[in-house]
Simulated assay, not measured.
Amino acid sequence: MNAVPLPKATRRGLADEAADLVRDALFDGRFPPGAPLREVELAAGLGVSRGSVREALARLREEGLVRGGWHRSATVIEVTADDVREVYELRAALDVLAATTARRTATGPRLDRLDALVDALEAKAHGGADDAELAAADLDFHDHVYDLAGNARLTAAWHAIRSQIRLFHLHRVTGAADGYRAHVVDEHRRIAALLRGDDESALAEYVREHVDAARRILLAATR
């Protein structure tokens, strides 16, 4: 049986770089929710072709950061109540599974990294870091919990919604009506401590409440 020839691989380096740069701009708050993303302006600003921008926007659309595109104008996703409910309900389930799995499998030295990440979060929360830097430091902590769990498919599920979570989380931090900077460090130290403990049910309950609190705050902001 003759092998079917495969199509030639194509390089998409410029589209990949354009996607990274636009994504970073979204996470930095330079394009607020609902802002238009115009191909011509982005191509000129990034120094790439409109085709590369079009591919970049398609990738960001797959990540859930952009709506529209191709035959419709692309815009940054808005923080709607339905989106918040769907994303944070899924996040709660994933975060609980990641935390309880990490508690069973992670060793002391690997858990020490969590303490360092909380220290970094504290430095940003009380050291004048901007909202985007603080939101990124928060998610760095949660990324490491998933790493500690050591479940590749669980991590892949996390990354499927991570971009949306980071954008929504930036919206929450920027609003900060709940005094986010005042309690974020204590919340993450509590999670780190529970990961070292023997009470898995207490860990699961606290992680679920941690996510649910963020969901409630975001839902209140969408009204």
Rank of each mutant, 00 (worst) to 15 (best):
A123F: 10
H142W: 10
I77W: 06
D95I: 02
Y146A: 00
D115N: 06
Y88A: 08
A132F: 14
A129Q: 09
L94E: 10
A132C: 13
D82C: 00
D143N: 12
L134S: 06
A120E: 13
F141M: 06
V145N: 04
D130R: 15
D83P: 06
L114P: 02
H71K: 09
D82N: 04
E133D: 15
G127Q: 03
T101R: 15
E78R: 13
R72N: 00
K124L: 14
L94P: 08
T101L: 13
H126W: 07
T105W: 01
G128S: 07
T107Y: 01
G108S: 14
E86K: 15
E62C: 02
F141V: 04
V79N: 04
G127I: 00
R67Y: 07
L117G: 02
A116Q: 14
T101K: 12
L139P: 00
R67N: 07
E63K: 14
T100Y: 13
A98S: 04
T107G: 12
L90C: 09
L94N: 04
L139K: 08
D82K: 04
D82T: 07
A106W: 12
V118N: 04
R113W: 08
D119I: 03
G69N: 08
G108L: 11
D82Q: 08
L65Q: 03
V66W: 06
